[in-house]
């Protein structure tokens, strides 16, 4: 029964990891930008959910509808006004730029919210469901479903909508996309906006599960990074696969060799993947 419980824990956690990573994967895959503000976007989303719940008693599920457009606009504007100026520069330049932007956003959050840890606790609490002694917390379950839904929505956007096809076209071959009349700058901004919207929504969901503080942003960013490398860049299902793989490794590793080494194990796996399968589980080879 313990093994079943650990597997279920890992599956649920894996979907949360995927939710954290998917926006990061999109931006890295399409813009070739390692977006270091991603973690702070998630924290900001969590504060949004916390603030709306504390002041107006708006349930986090409704906050998703506020967070998505708000963060989309935020991301779109940041890309248009700032990132776009260096988007064709080598990856180190955009990395440094997002690092700087992250410092600003993160310190602004420390300034306004303080470094104190806060917690969004629903009243009444949602509790847990148990099936044959295997316990699953309801909030995590809903967050998992929401994470899957967000992933699916992104998949639909990329597959079915014109703008989605344009994003994929830019990702595959920027120059050819320009020749076909795709407005690349606008596509970049939309992709970055989508990435930010996904981060904001992830933040709203994480607010229910993790303590909220600007200091947690690096933990989210770290997980997103590992998930992307494991799952493969620029593939929606890759983030999901990477997330579940990471959570399984951590969960099973933690049970077998102790929680102190679970993180080490996941980073060893990361190195192995970087050497043997740099494109990740589901990433496309030859695409940077």
């Amino acid at each position: 029964m313990l093994a079943a419980q650990i597997l279920i824990n890992a599956l649920v956690l894996g979907c949360l990891y995927a939710c954290i990573a998917i926006g990061f994967s999109l931006v890295w895959g399409v813009l070739n930008v390692i977006n270091l503000i991603h973690g702070s976007f998630i924290v900001l989303g969590a504060y949004l959910a916390w603030g709306l719940y504390q002041s107006l008693h708006i349930s986090p599920w409704y906050s998703l509808a506020v967070a998505a457009p708000l963060f989309f606009v935020f991301g779109y504007v940041i890309q248009r006004l700032i990132l776009n100026r260096v988007i064709t520069a080598p990856v180190l330049v955009t990395l440094t730029l997002t690092f700087g932007l992250d410092l600003i956003l993160n310190n602004a959050m420390i300034y306004y919210f303080k470094a104190d840890y806060r917690k969004l606790t629903l009243t009444p609490p949602m509790g847990s469901v148990s099936i044959f002694d295997v316990v699953v917390p309801v909030d995590r379950l809903i967050a998992t479903v929401a994470a899957l839904a967000l992933t699916f929505v992104l998949y639909l956007i990329l597959r079915r909508l014109r703008v989605g096809r344009a994003i994929v076209a830019v990702r595959l071959d920027r120059d050819a996309a320009i020749l076909m009349g795709v407005k690349v700058n606008s596509i970049y901004a939309i992709a970055f906006g989508l990435g930010a919207a996904l981060a904001g929504c992830a933040g709203v969901l994480m607010a229910l599960i993790f303590p909220i503080s600007p200091l947690t942003s690096t933990a989210y960013l770290g997980k997103a990074f590992v998930v992307c490398v494991l799952g493969g860049l620029g593939s929606v299902s890759g983030a999901l696969a990477g997330g579940i793989l990471l959570a399984l490794i951590e969960g099973v590793g933690s049970a077998m060799i102790g929680p102190a080494h679970a993180t080490t194990l996941s980073f060893v796996l990361l190195i192995v993947f970087l050497i043997l399968r740099p494109q990740g589980l589901l990433g496309r080879k030859g695409f940077e």
Binding site: G222, G251, P259
Partner: peptide, 12 residues
Amino acid sequence: EKYAIGTLDHSA
């Protein structure tokens, strides 16, 4: 047992 600094999940 010890858990690593920055652990995001203790479920296992």
